[in-house]
Amino acid sequence: MNQNPVNGTSNADLRKAYKRQSQGRDIWRRFCKNKMAVAALIVLSIIVLAACTADLFWDYEQDACALNISEKLQKPSREHILGTDELGRDILCRLVYGARVSLEVGIGAATFALVIGAILGSIGGYYGGRVDSIIMRVTDVLLAIPGLLLGIAIVSAFKPTVFYMALAFGISYVSKFTRIIRSAILSIRDQEYVEAARAIGAKDHVIILRHILLNCMAPILVQYALCIGTRILSVSTLSFIGLGIQAPTPDWGSMLAGARAYIRGNTYLVMGPGLALLLTISSFNIIGDGIRDALDPRLKK
């Protein structure tokens, strides 16, 4: 090592990079073998794609928000594939735009939880001691309050906007990420390559980011997918009990809440948003499972 430091490190780096790459490819290959997971990924991609490209097919103001009372409560037809809602708007169009709110809040909440969780978990796990125990107490407290209730309380204290909802529903997931990352760090903190990095004078945050977090990517990814699903569910519940996002913004939960009164004569009204929620959330869950299975092939034959 001493004779040829440049060559040595680059070799090691190459080897490590190759290993990581092949490992990633391996996981991806295993993931692709899981038909359910691939199907979920395709479904989810379609939903995301639709939400992103909705503007190509519809005009947000005109089709998703503007009312057309004379056409209200129409059964599915060629013109309106999923029918129209109680205020005469095309349900398909609102479903597609509604995906935006759900995904934004879901991903926003999960990302927020991940970032805060990563920071707290890394600090706690890496440094240990008093900081660690304070952080763990905080996560204990947050774990004791059901996430949905905490979210509802926070949203009602502020405003039901996408930003606050993401924040409110993210907070309760912080604990989970903190714990995952902390225990991952604890298990590798004293391993040789981390000590080696420390020995060559790498900064703490570099070590945490490059060596430790990258190594516990897998459980984080699984939890991230699950978190998005759960939070989409929470948001729809919030809208359903009438505390959610402001009308006329299309949102699956408030679509369900609005349709509830008409449910008996026009059951198709609740099928669209209900199934959209089911599909989206189960896609996230199946993908999460798929990643887990791909990472731990013991579970699958």
Binding site: L67, L87, G242, Q246, A247, P248, G258
Partner: peptide, 25 residues
């Protein structure tokens, strides 16, 4: 619920004349 539906109509109507209406249950 009925008031909520009516208020959505009012919201759309008032938007035309520059009034931005938000409502709470």
């Amino acid at each position: 619920d009925a008031e909520e539906r009516i208020m959505q109509v009012v919201q759309a109507n008032l938007k035309e004349i520059g009034i931005n209406l938000t409502f709470n249950r």
